[in-house]
Design a protein around this nucleic acid. Structure first.
Lengths: 247, 247
DNA sequence: AAGTCTCTCCTAAGAACTTAGGATACCGCA
DNA sequence: TGCGGTATCCTAAGTTCTTAGGAGAGACTT
């Protein structure tokens, strides 16, 4: 399957090795967009699908589509009808915009959205669905006038896309953890905060761990101080943010 | 950075191209484990960090460590003290077991856990932290007697690990797509839960939104019911989990 | 051996949350 | 026009959390 002079594979690992050196969010974005350009994708956008009432803008992880295009896309709420997005509900495998056209006939409203993309310099694009532990969906989408969509390039773009999404997410989490700087919790505090996060009262936790209620209260109070929280709910959020407990 | 005869890069893309053909969970597992073997990793385990009361076993995504080892690991709850796991709280970048030893002196209990891994044929391992939109942590960990941990191999294993985790997750989501149907929060409920998550009391939220305290309380109670929570802390956690509010 | 950290436990008043009932008004949809 | 959903507000008793003190036992470090 591999062939001599397989530059795709080399590029992929070079990309990873360089990205490993970067820590700043903006640098990472630049690095990703530059790599996608090599594949003939002039623009990249990556975002999670906004829930009902949620703003698409707040869900954007990375985007260098033309500003005018983005603004209209957000304002007109295209994300609800964009076939490139709605297709996510049908499949979990990567697909290109042209794949959708081959699969089914587009509605008028769908055609309109895709034509508008073409006007702004994106004739074809590649959608990489991102699934997460909590199930919520996101996508990584490079697009351009004449992108390389050969099988080998698709493999490279898919793995680079998933890795990039992860790298961006990692940078965000890193930032959050720094912002939530704190003295680390003791194992007992962490254990108890994890129970608090699961909705248990101090009495219940005391029963579970076979200690006094006051002990539990005391640990929670210590944890709250360490996490700079006056309220348990916020202490739990801070504990999650800082990686002390998990969801 | 790339060099002639870069088989790592070729292998990586070959791996992706083959994986794209697979749909069955077990096939994907086999494919991943086989690839890791090429790098000198005899075993692979991938799991999300279990919460309290949650069983590690239920969080395992992929695992072919010796059964006896796994059973003891689960039974003795090693996951809480395993330095390979606890290190996740300190860093979000990949690291090897030997990296941890270089960074700090291990406690007796930690040394014991790592020695036990060695007994079962894993002298060194490579941890790839997985971060998600909701912030919860997971890891992908190949290990073996004499794994290839050269810089180029690390890059390859990292991107393969992240891609593999995603592929497994995708297969799981595909399997369980029809399950979790929770009633979505109303915009107001979501807004208020976001404030609750930031540690505000009902009184404070009422001030912020210029409504009565009882209104706020009422919204929170409705949200709690929708989220199947008896306690606010858990309601916040559930809201984050289901993507209703963000960290 | 002294100091630090962790885990355990205690009191007690006041603040905040929980629960289970209500009620009114507005809006969109059938 | 009526129905369901949302948003607003109310009471009131009971439970849980918050705060600010304290103190002893054991482990680890210097």
């Amino acid at each position: 399957m591999a062939f001599e002079g397989d530059t795709y594979g080399q590029r992929t690992l070079d990309f990873v090795e360089r990205l490993q050196q970067l820590t700043e969010y903006d640098e990472i974005c630049q690095h990703i967009m530059k790599e996608m350009e090599w594949f003939g994708f002039s623009c990249v956008s990556s975002f999670s699908i906004p829930g009902p009432g949620e703003n698409l803008k707040a869900s954007i992880q990375l985007n260098n589509r033309p500003q005018e295009y983005t603004e209209r896309y957000v304002e007109k709420n295209y994300v609800v009808h964009d076939p490139a997005v709605t297709e996510l509900r049908k499949t979990i495998h990567p697909y290109s915009w042209s794949d959708i056209r081959k699969r089914r006939v587009l509605k008028k409203s769908e055609k309109l959205i895709m034509d508008e993309a073409t006007e702004f310099g994106a004739r074809d694009g590649f959608i990489i669905p991102i699934v997460t532990i909590s199930g919520s969906a996101a996508l990584f989408c490079p697009c351009g006038l004449e992108p390389d969509l050969s099988p080998r390039a698709r493999a490279a773009v898919e793995i680079i896309g998933i890795y990039s999404h992860h790298a961006l997410q990692r940078a965000l989490v890193h930032k959050q953890r720094e912002e939530a700087a704190h003295t680390p919790l003791t194992p007992r505090e962490r254990e108890i905060m994890q129970w608090v996060a699961s909705g248990k009262t101090d009495d219940e936790i005391a029963d579970i761990l076979s200690v006094g209620t006051s002990t539990v209260t005391s640990h929670v109070e210590n944890a709250k101080k360490k996490l700079d929280a006056f309220r348990r709910t916020y202490a739990v959020v801070q504990a999650i943010r800082s990686g002390e407990i998990s969801l």
